[in-house]
C-alpha cells in the first residue's frame, strides 16, 4: 500500500472511529438514568481508539492479502 494511501486511511480511520463510537454512544444510551451521559460518552473515544489501533495493526495483513489478490496493491 502506498504511504499516502495508508496515511489517509489512518487519518480517516481514527477520525471515523471516534465519530462512529460517538454515534453509538448517542444511540445506545437509554436516557433513563440520571442523564449525565458521561459513562457512555467516556467509553466512546476509548472504543474508537481501540478499534482504530486494532485496524491499523492488522492493516499490513489485510494489505498483503489485497496485494496477493490484486497483483500489485491498491
Amino acid at each position: 500500500m502506498k504511504r499516502r494511501t495508508s496515511d489517509m486511511l489512518a487519518f480517516g480511520g481514527a477520525a471515523g472511529a471516534v465519530g462512529v463510537s460517538a454515534v453509538l454512544a448517542k444511540v445506545l444510551c437509554p436516557g433513563s438514568c440520571a442523564g449525565c451521559g458521561s459513562c457512555v460518552a467516556s467509553i466512546a473515544p476509548m472504543a474508537g481508539a481501540a478499534l482504530t489501533l486494532g485496524a491499523v495493526l492488522t492493516g499490513p495483513i489485510v494489505g498483503r492479502a489485497l496485494r496477493r489478490t490484486k497483483g500489485g496493491g491498491l
Binding site: F11, A15, T52
Partner: peptide
C-alpha cells in the same frame, strides 16, 4: 493517527 483522533 494523531491528527485523525484530534479531528474526531
Amino acid at each position: 493517527l494523531r491528527y485523525g483522533f484530534f479531528a474526531g
